[in-house]
Write a protein that binds this DNA or RNA. Structure first.
Lengths: 210, 210
DNA sequence: GCCGGTATCGGGTATCTTCCCGATAAGGTA
DNA sequence: TACCTTATCGGGAAGATACCCGATACCGGC
Protein backbone atom coordinates (compact mmCIF):
# COMPACT_ATOMS: atom_id res chain seq x y z
CA UNK A 1 0.00 0.00 0.00
CA UNK A 2 1.43 3.36 -0.96
CA UNK A 3 2.06 6.06 1.59
CA UNK A 4 -0.87 8.47 1.68
CA UNK A 5 -0.16 12.16 2.20
CA UNK A 6 -1.80 15.55 1.94
CA UNK A 7 -0.02 18.70 0.76
CA UNK A 8 -0.60 22.13 2.27
CA UNK A 9 1.01 25.12 0.59
CA UNK A 10 -0.58 28.36 -0.49
CA UNK A 11 1.00 28.17 -3.93
CA UNK A 12 -0.97 25.96 -6.30
CA UNK A 13 1.91 25.91 -8.75
CA UNK A 14 4.22 24.52 -6.08
CA UNK A 15 1.65 21.97 -4.92
CA UNK A 16 1.13 20.64 -8.41
CA UNK A 17 4.86 20.32 -8.95
CA UNK A 18 5.30 18.48 -5.66
CA UNK A 19 2.41 16.18 -6.50
CA UNK A 20 4.20 15.10 -9.67
CA UNK A 21 7.40 14.53 -7.74
CA UNK A 22 5.68 12.39 -5.12
CA UNK A 23 3.49 10.41 -7.51
CA UNK A 24 6.58 9.53 -9.50
CA UNK A 25 7.82 7.94 -6.26
CA UNK A 26 4.52 6.10 -5.77
CA UNK A 27 3.48 8.28 -2.87
CA UNK A 28 -0.25 8.93 -3.02
CA UNK A 29 -1.40 12.53 -2.66
CA UNK A 30 -4.86 12.39 -1.13
CA UNK A 31 -5.49 16.10 -1.24
CA UNK A 32 -4.10 19.60 -1.48
CA UNK A 33 -4.85 22.50 0.86
CA UNK A 34 -4.10 26.14 0.17
CA UNK A 35 -4.36 27.41 3.74
CA UNK A 36 -4.11 26.21 7.31
CA UNK A 37 -7.79 25.76 8.04
CA UNK A 38 -8.33 23.81 4.85
CA UNK A 39 -5.38 21.62 5.79
CA UNK A 40 -6.93 20.81 9.16
CA UNK A 41 -10.29 19.98 7.63
CA UNK A 42 -8.56 17.75 5.13
CA UNK A 43 -6.51 15.97 7.77
CA UNK A 44 -9.64 15.38 9.83
CA UNK A 45 -11.51 13.95 6.86
CA UNK A 46 -8.87 11.99 5.02
CA UNK A 47 -6.73 10.85 7.97
CA UNK A 48 -3.53 10.66 5.93
CA UNK A 49 -0.43 8.93 7.23
CA UNK A 50 1.54 12.09 6.60
CA UNK A 51 0.75 15.79 6.17
CA UNK A 52 3.27 18.03 4.42
CA UNK A 53 2.81 21.56 5.69
CA UNK A 54 4.22 24.83 4.45
CA UNK A 55 5.26 27.14 7.28
CA UNK A 56 3.98 30.31 5.59
CA UNK A 57 0.29 30.07 4.96
CA UNK A 58 -2.41 32.72 5.16
CA UNK A 59 -4.68 32.58 8.18
CA UNK A 60 -3.09 29.69 10.01
CA UNK A 61 0.59 28.95 9.69
CA UNK A 62 2.09 25.48 9.62
CA UNK A 63 3.02 25.41 13.30
CA UNK A 64 -0.53 26.15 14.33
CA UNK A 65 -1.85 23.52 11.96
CA UNK A 66 0.60 21.13 13.56
CA UNK A 67 -0.90 21.49 16.98
CA UNK A 68 -4.45 21.21 15.75
CA UNK A 69 -3.66 18.25 13.54
CA UNK A 70 -2.36 16.33 16.54
CA UNK A 71 -5.78 16.73 18.11
CA UNK A 72 -8.01 15.79 15.18
CA UNK A 73 -5.82 13.01 13.84
CA UNK A 74 -3.12 11.85 16.26
CA UNK A 75 -1.95 9.11 13.92
CA UNK A 76 -1.11 11.64 11.20
CA UNK A 77 2.56 12.54 11.18
CA UNK A 78 3.57 15.97 10.03
CA UNK A 79 6.40 17.24 7.87
CA UNK A 80 7.24 20.93 7.82
CA UNK A 81 8.26 22.24 4.41
CA UNK A 82 9.67 25.73 4.43
CA UNK A 83 12.01 28.32 3.04
CA UNK A 84 13.13 29.39 6.52
CA UNK A 85 16.57 28.24 7.42
CA UNK A 86 16.56 29.89 10.83
CA UNK A 87 16.71 27.16 13.42
CA UNK A 88 14.21 28.70 15.86
CA UNK A 89 11.47 27.66 13.46
CA UNK A 90 12.76 24.10 13.28
CA UNK A 91 13.19 23.81 17.01
CA UNK A 92 9.71 25.14 17.62
CA UNK A 93 8.26 22.79 15.01
CA UNK A 94 9.94 19.75 16.52
CA UNK A 95 8.89 20.81 19.99
CA UNK A 96 5.27 20.90 18.89
CA UNK A 97 5.58 17.47 17.35
CA UNK A 98 6.67 17.73 13.72
CA UNK A 99 8.43 14.59 12.51
CA UNK A 100 10.47 16.24 9.80
CA UNK A 101 11.72 19.65 8.74
CA UNK A 102 12.55 20.04 5.06
CA UNK A 103 13.94 23.15 3.38
CA UNK A 104 12.55 24.26 0.04
CA UNK A 105 16.09 24.98 -1.03
CA UNK A 106 16.88 21.27 -0.87
CA UNK A 107 16.34 18.72 -3.63
CA UNK A 108 13.00 17.02 -4.07
CA UNK A 109 14.67 13.78 -3.11
CA UNK A 110 15.01 15.34 0.31
CA UNK A 111 11.25 15.58 0.68
CA UNK A 112 10.81 12.03 -0.57
CA UNK A 113 13.45 10.85 1.89
CA UNK A 114 11.71 12.73 4.68
CA UNK A 115 8.38 11.10 3.85
CA UNK A 116 9.90 7.61 3.80
CA UNK A 117 11.76 8.15 7.06
CA UNK A 118 8.71 9.58 8.80
CA UNK A 119 6.57 6.74 7.49
CA UNK A 120 8.95 4.35 9.23
CA UNK A 121 8.47 6.29 12.45
CA UNK A 122 11.75 8.15 12.30
CA UNK A 123 12.51 11.84 12.49
CA UNK A 124 14.11 13.58 9.51
CA UNK A 125 15.84 16.92 9.20
CA UNK A 126 17.18 18.61 6.09
CA UNK A 127 20.97 18.26 6.17
CA UNK A 128 21.55 22.02 6.26
CA UNK A 129 19.40 22.44 9.32
CA UNK A 130 20.61 19.49 11.37
CA UNK A 131 23.65 20.95 13.04
CA UNK A 132 21.93 24.15 14.02
CA UNK A 133 19.00 22.27 15.52
CA UNK A 134 21.09 19.83 17.47
CA UNK A 135 23.11 22.72 18.84
CA UNK A 136 19.95 24.59 19.74
CA UNK A 137 18.58 21.59 21.57
CA UNK A 138 21.78 21.07 23.48
CA UNK A 139 22.23 24.67 24.48
CA UNK A 140 18.61 25.40 25.20
CA UNK A 141 16.42 22.44 26.09
CA UNK A 142 13.38 24.49 27.04
CA UNK A 143 12.27 28.12 26.56
CA UNK A 144 11.48 28.84 22.92
CA UNK A 145 12.06 32.33 21.57
CA UNK A 146 8.73 34.03 21.92
CA UNK A 147 6.99 35.76 24.71
CA UNK A 148 3.75 35.08 22.88
CA UNK A 149 1.72 31.91 23.17
CA UNK A 150 0.82 29.98 20.06
CA UNK A 151 -2.73 31.26 20.04
CA UNK A 152 -1.55 34.80 20.46
CA UNK A 153 0.81 34.44 17.52
CA UNK A 154 -2.04 33.12 15.38
CA UNK A 155 -4.18 36.10 16.26
CA UNK A 156 -1.30 38.48 15.65
CA UNK A 157 -0.72 36.97 12.24
CA UNK A 158 -4.36 37.41 11.29
CA UNK A 159 -4.37 40.98 12.57
CA UNK A 160 -1.38 41.64 10.37
CA UNK A 161 -3.23 40.21 7.41
CA UNK A 162 -5.89 42.83 7.93
CA UNK A 163 -8.71 40.81 9.44
CA UNK A 164 -11.09 42.29 12.00
CA UNK A 165 -11.43 40.72 15.42
CA UNK A 166 -14.81 39.31 14.46
CA UNK A 167 -13.38 37.74 11.33
CA UNK A 168 -10.45 36.32 13.25
CA UNK A 169 -12.83 34.76 15.77
CA UNK A 170 -14.78 33.18 12.92
CA UNK A 171 -11.60 31.86 11.30
CA UNK A 172 -10.38 30.31 14.53
CA UNK A 173 -13.80 29.12 15.62
CA UNK A 174 -13.83 31.04 18.90
CA UNK A 175 -15.92 33.91 20.23
CA UNK A 176 -15.19 37.50 19.34
CA UNK A 177 -14.47 38.22 22.98
CA UNK A 178 -11.82 35.52 23.16
CA UNK A 179 -10.13 36.75 20.03
CA UNK A 180 -10.23 40.22 21.52
CA UNK A 181 -8.64 38.95 24.72
CA UNK A 182 -5.80 37.37 22.76
CA UNK A 183 -5.31 40.57 20.80
CA UNK A 184 -5.26 42.59 23.99
CA UNK A 185 -2.80 40.15 25.57
CA UNK A 186 -0.48 40.50 22.61
CA UNK A 187 -0.55 44.29 22.88
CA UNK A 188 0.12 44.09 26.56
CA UNK A 189 3.04 41.66 26.21
CA UNK A 190 4.66 43.56 23.35
CA UNK A 191 3.81 46.98 24.76
CA UNK A 192 2.40 48.00 21.40
CA UNK A 193 -0.90 49.80 21.40
CA UNK A 194 -2.10 50.29 17.84
CA UNK A 195 -2.79 48.05 14.88
CA UNK A 196 0.00 49.64 12.84
CA UNK A 197 2.59 48.68 15.44
CA UNK A 198 1.33 45.11 15.55
CA UNK A 199 1.57 44.83 11.78
CA UNK A 200 5.15 46.07 11.77
CA UNK A 201 6.06 43.68 14.59
CA UNK A 202 4.49 40.77 12.69
CA UNK A 203 6.51 41.67 9.60
CA UNK A 204 9.76 42.10 11.52
CA UNK A 205 9.28 38.67 13.05
CA UNK A 206 8.40 36.93 9.81
CA UNK A 207 4.81 36.15 10.72
CA UNK A 208 3.57 37.87 7.59
CA UNK A 209 4.95 39.34 4.41
CA UNK A 210 5.03 43.10 3.86
CA UNK B 1 11.61 21.73 -31.91
CA UNK B 2 10.52 22.08 -28.32
CA UNK B 3 10.58 25.39 -26.50
CA UNK B 4 13.81 25.78 -24.54
CA UNK B 5 13.67 27.50 -21.15
CA UNK B 6 15.72 28.03 -18.04
CA UNK B 7 14.26 28.13 -14.52
CA UNK B 8 15.47 30.52 -11.83
CA UNK B 9 14.10 30.09 -8.31
CA UNK B 10 15.99 29.83 -5.06
CA UNK B 11 14.02 26.76 -4.01
CA UNK B 12 15.42 23.59 -5.55
CA UNK B 13 12.33 21.68 -4.52
CA UNK B 14 10.15 24.10 -6.44
CA UNK B 15 12.44 24.04 -9.49
CA UNK B 16 12.40 20.29 -9.67
CA UNK B 17 8.62 20.21 -9.41
CA UNK B 18 8.30 22.81 -12.14
CA UNK B 19 10.73 20.89 -14.33
CA UNK B 20 8.49 17.85 -14.16
CA UNK B 21 5.45 19.96 -15.00
CA UNK B 22 7.16 21.52 -18.02
CA UNK B 23 8.77 18.36 -19.34
CA UNK B 24 5.41 16.66 -19.23
CA UNK B 25 4.32 19.41 -21.63
CA UNK B 26 7.35 18.84 -23.86
CA UNK B 27 9.01 22.06 -22.84
CA UNK B 28 12.74 21.57 -22.55
CA UNK B 29 14.41 22.84 -19.37
CA UNK B 30 17.97 23.74 -20.35
CA UNK B 31 19.05 24.65 -16.87
CA UNK B 32 18.13 25.70 -13.36
CA UNK B 33 19.51 28.65 -11.45
CA UNK B 34 19.19 29.20 -7.71
CA UNK B 35 20.05 32.90 -7.68
CA UNK B 36 20.07 35.93 -9.90
CA UNK B 37 23.72 35.88 -10.90
CA UNK B 38 23.58 32.22 -11.81
CA UNK B 39 20.49 32.96 -13.88
CA UNK B 40 22.30 35.65 -15.85
CA UNK B 41 25.33 33.42 -16.49
CA UNK B 42 23.01 30.69 -17.64
CA UNK B 43 21.05 32.98 -19.95
CA UNK B 44 24.30 34.25 -21.46
CA UNK B 45 25.62 30.75 -22.06
CA UNK B 46 22.54 28.83 -23.07
CA UNK B 47 20.59 31.58 -24.86
CA UNK B 48 17.20 30.07 -24.08
CA UNK B 49 14.05 31.25 -25.82
CA UNK B 50 12.48 31.89 -22.45
CA UNK B 51 13.70 32.48 -18.89
CA UNK B 52 11.34 31.89 -15.99
CA UNK B 53 12.43 34.10 -13.09
CA UNK B 54 11.31 34.13 -9.48
CA UNK B 55 10.95 37.65 -8.10
CA UNK B 56 12.45 36.82 -4.69
CA UNK B 57 15.95 35.56 -5.10
CA UNK B 58 19.01 36.09 -2.96
CA UNK B 59 21.67 38.40 -4.34
CA UNK B 60 19.90 39.65 -7.42
CA UNK B 61 16.12 39.75 -7.60
CA UNK B 62 14.07 38.93 -10.68
CA UNK B 63 13.65 42.52 -11.81
CA UNK B 64 17.39 43.16 -11.78
CA UNK B 65 18.00 39.93 -13.65
CA UNK B 66 15.43 41.13 -16.15
CA UNK B 67 17.42 44.26 -16.94
CA UNK B 68 20.69 42.41 -17.24
CA UNK B 69 19.22 39.58 -19.29
CA UNK B 70 17.99 42.05 -21.91
CA UNK B 71 21.62 43.12 -22.36
CA UNK B 72 23.32 39.74 -22.58
CA UNK B 73 20.62 37.97 -24.57
CA UNK B 74 18.07 40.28 -26.16
CA UNK B 75 16.30 37.42 -27.90
CA UNK B 76 15.51 35.72 -24.59
CA UNK B 77 12.03 36.51 -23.37
CA UNK B 78 11.38 36.61 -19.66
CA UNK B 79 8.53 35.36 -17.52
CA UNK B 80 8.19 36.56 -13.94
CA UNK B 81 7.00 33.89 -11.53
CA UNK B 82 6.07 35.16 -8.10
CA UNK B 83 3.98 34.96 -5.00
CA UNK B 84 3.32 38.71 -5.02
CA UNK B 85 -0.16 39.67 -6.07
CA UNK B 86 0.36 43.40 -5.63
CA UNK B 87 0.15 45.07 -9.02
CA UNK B 88 3.04 47.51 -8.50
CA UNK B 89 5.38 44.57 -8.96
CA UNK B 90 3.66 43.47 -12.14
CA UNK B 91 3.55 46.97 -13.60
CA UNK B 92 7.23 47.48 -12.84
CA UNK B 93 8.13 44.11 -14.33
CA UNK B 94 6.24 44.83 -17.54
CA UNK B 95 7.77 48.27 -17.73
CA UNK B 96 11.23 46.75 -17.67
CA UNK B 97 10.31 44.28 -20.36
CA UNK B 98 8.92 41.09 -18.87
CA UNK B 99 6.64 39.24 -21.27
CA UNK B 100 4.55 37.46 -18.67
CA UNK B 101 3.68 37.68 -15.00
CA UNK B 102 2.53 34.44 -13.39
CA UNK B 103 1.41 33.98 -9.79
CA UNK B 104 2.55 30.98 -7.80
CA UNK B 105 -0.94 30.68 -6.42
CA UNK B 106 -2.21 29.83 -9.89
CA UNK B 107 -2.31 26.38 -11.47
CA UNK B 108 0.72 24.97 -13.25
CA UNK B 109 -1.27 25.15 -16.47
CA UNK B 110 -1.01 28.90 -16.05
CA UNK B 111 2.76 28.78 -16.33
CA UNK B 112 2.56 26.47 -19.31
CA UNK B 113 0.06 28.82 -20.96
CA UNK B 114 2.34 31.76 -20.24
CA UNK B 115 5.31 29.99 -21.84
CA UNK B 116 3.32 29.11 -24.94
CA UNK B 117 1.93 32.63 -25.30
CA UNK B 118 5.30 34.25 -24.82
CA UNK B 119 6.89 31.85 -27.28
CA UNK B 120 4.39 33.11 -29.85
CA UNK B 121 5.48 36.66 -29.09
CA UNK B 122 2.48 37.55 -26.97
CA UNK B 123 2.23 38.96 -23.48
CA UNK B 124 0.60 36.90 -20.73
CA UNK B 125 -0.70 37.87 -17.30
CA UNK B 126 -2.11 35.62 -14.61
CA UNK B 127 -5.91 36.06 -14.58
CA UNK B 128 -5.96 37.36 -11.02
CA UNK B 129 -3.51 40.12 -11.79
CA UNK B 130 -4.84 41.20 -15.16
CA UNK B 131 -7.57 43.58 -14.07
CA UNK B 132 -5.41 45.38 -11.58
CA UNK B 133 -2.61 45.86 -14.07
CA UNK B 134 -4.85 47.01 -16.87
CA UNK B 135 -6.47 49.47 -14.52
CA UNK B 136 -3.10 50.71 -13.37
CA UNK B 137 -1.98 51.25 -16.96
CA UNK B 138 -5.20 52.93 -18.03
CA UNK B 139 -5.58 55.22 -15.07
CA UNK B 140 -1.92 56.08 -14.95
CA UNK B 141 0.09 55.62 -18.15
CA UNK B 142 3.11 57.48 -16.79
CA UNK B 143 3.90 58.51 -13.21
CA UNK B 144 6.40 56.13 -11.61
CA UNK B 145 4.83 55.25 -8.30
CA UNK B 146 2.98 58.41 -7.38
CA UNK B 147 -0.69 57.67 -7.49
CA UNK B 148 -0.87 59.46 -4.18
CA UNK B 149 -0.60 63.20 -3.67
CA UNK B 150 2.03 64.61 -1.37
CA UNK B 151 -0.44 65.21 1.42
CA UNK B 152 -1.83 61.72 1.07
CA UNK B 153 1.61 60.19 1.30
CA UNK B 154 2.31 62.20 4.43
CA UNK B 155 -0.86 60.94 6.03
CA UNK B 156 -0.17 57.36 4.95
CA UNK B 157 3.29 57.53 6.46
CA UNK B 158 1.93 58.78 9.77
CA UNK B 159 -0.75 56.10 9.76
CA UNK B 160 1.96 53.53 9.24
CA UNK B 161 3.85 54.94 12.18
CA UNK B 162 0.84 54.21 14.35
CA UNK B 163 -0.65 57.66 14.86
CA UNK B 164 -4.39 58.18 15.18
CA UNK B 165 -6.23 60.44 12.79
CA UNK B 166 -6.58 63.07 15.48
CA UNK B 167 -2.86 62.99 16.18
CA UNK B 168 -2.04 63.19 12.50
CA UNK B 169 -4.27 66.23 12.15
CA UNK B 170 -2.47 67.87 15.03
CA UNK B 171 0.94 67.04 13.57
CA UNK B 172 0.01 68.48 10.17
CA UNK B 173 -1.91 71.41 11.60
CA UNK B 174 -5.20 70.56 9.90
CA UNK B 175 -8.60 69.51 11.15
CA UNK B 176 -9.36 65.90 12.07
CA UNK B 177 -11.89 65.74 9.30
CA UNK B 178 -9.36 66.74 6.67
CA UNK B 179 -6.90 64.17 7.87
CA UNK B 180 -9.71 61.64 7.74
CA UNK B 181 -10.53 62.65 4.18
CA UNK B 182 -6.92 62.14 3.10
CA UNK B 183 -6.85 58.78 4.80
CA UNK B 184 -10.08 57.78 3.09
CA UNK B 185 -8.72 58.98 -0.26
CA UNK B 186 -5.60 56.86 0.17
CA UNK B 187 -7.68 53.78 0.89
CA UNK B 188 -9.84 54.47 -2.12
CA UNK B 189 -6.89 54.96 -4.45
CA UNK B 190 -4.99 51.92 -3.27
CA UNK B 191 -8.11 49.81 -2.85
CA UNK B 192 -6.98 48.86 0.63
CA UNK B 193 -9.56 48.96 3.37
CA UNK B 194 -7.92 48.30 6.71
CA UNK B 195 -5.09 49.86 8.66
CA UNK B 196 -3.03 46.69 8.44
CA UNK B 197 -3.06 46.81 4.66
CA UNK B 198 -2.01 50.46 4.66
CA UNK B 199 0.90 49.70 6.94
CA UNK B 200 2.11 46.87 4.72
CA UNK B 201 1.78 49.09 1.64
CA UNK B 202 3.76 51.85 3.32
CA UNK B 203 6.52 49.38 4.17
CA UNK B 204 6.61 47.88 0.70
CA UNK B 205 6.99 51.34 -0.77
CA UNK B 206 9.68 52.47 1.60
CA UNK B 207 7.60 55.12 3.35
CA UNK B 208 8.35 53.57 6.73
CA UNK B 209 10.58 50.92 8.21
CA UNK B 210 9.10 47.63 9.37
C1' DG C 1 -14.30 79.36 -18.85
C1' DC C 2 -15.09 74.87 -17.58
C1' DC C 3 -13.24 70.58 -15.67
C1' DG C 4 -10.31 67.73 -12.81
C1' DG C 5 -7.32 67.27 -9.11
C1' DT C 6 -5.84 68.79 -4.67
C1' DA C 7 -6.76 70.52 -0.13
C1' DT C 8 -9.66 72.13 3.14
C1' DC C 9 -13.82 71.29 6.49
C1' DG C 10 -18.40 69.44 8.46
C1' DG C 11 -22.52 66.05 9.94
C1' DG C 12 -23.69 61.53 10.70
C1' DT C 13 -23.32 56.43 11.46
C1' DA C 14 -22.10 51.64 11.76
C1' DT C 15 -18.41 49.10 12.89
C1' DC C 16 -14.02 48.22 15.12
C1' DT C 17 -10.53 48.95 18.45
C1' DT C 18 -8.68 49.51 23.01
C1' DC C 19 -9.20 48.72 27.52
C1' DC C 20 -11.68 48.28 31.84
C1' DC C 21 -14.24 44.85 34.82
C1' DG C 22 -15.42 40.10 35.68
C1' DA C 23 -15.52 34.73 35.23
C1' DT C 24 -14.44 29.31 34.40
C1' DA C 25 -11.58 25.43 33.11
C1' DA C 26 -7.45 22.72 31.76
C1' DG C 27 -2.65 22.07 32.24
C1' DG C 28 1.89 22.17 34.12
C1' DT C 29 5.15 23.59 38.11
C1' DA C 30 6.75 24.34 42.74
C1' DT D 1 -2.02 21.33 47.32
C1' DA D 2 -1.30 25.91 45.77
C1' DC D 3 0.00 28.63 41.99
C1' DC D 4 0.63 30.24 37.21
C1' DT D 5 -0.14 30.26 32.41
C1' DT D 6 -3.10 29.54 28.78
C1' DA D 7 -7.47 29.59 26.71
C1' DT D 8 -12.08 30.35 26.89
C1' DC D 9 -16.24 33.86 27.33
C1' DG D 10 -19.05 37.99 28.82
C1' DG D 11 -20.70 43.28 29.82
C1' DG D 12 -19.63 47.82 29.17
C1' DA D 13 -17.47 52.22 27.57
C1' DA D 14 -14.64 55.59 25.20
C1' DG D 15 -12.42 56.37 21.32
C1' DA D 16 -11.01 55.37 16.43
C1' DT D 17 -11.96 53.81 11.99
C1' DA D 18 -14.41 53.35 7.55
C1' DC D 19 -17.49 55.43 4.76
C1' DC D 20 -21.69 58.04 3.49
C1' DC D 21 -23.40 62.70 2.48
C1' DG D 22 -22.36 67.51 1.69
C1' DA D 23 -19.45 72.05 0.93
C1' DT D 24 -15.68 75.91 -0.52
C1' DA D 25 -11.40 77.25 -2.65
C1' DC D 26 -7.13 77.24 -5.48
C1' DC D 27 -4.62 75.88 -9.48
C1' DG D 28 -3.54 74.30 -13.96
C1' DG D 29 -4.82 72.44 -18.52
C1' DC D 30 -7.54 72.26 -22.61
Amino acid sequence: MPIRVILADDHLLVRQGLRLVLEKEHIEVLGEASDGLEAIRMIQELLPEIAVLDLDMPGLDGLSVLREAARVSPQTRTIILTRHMEEPYAVEALRIGARAYVLKTQASTDLVAAIRHVDRGEVYLSPKISNAVVRAFLTNPDAPNGKLSLRERQVLQLVGEGHSTKKIAALLGISTKTADTHRTKVMEKLDIHQTAGLVRYAIRNGLIEP
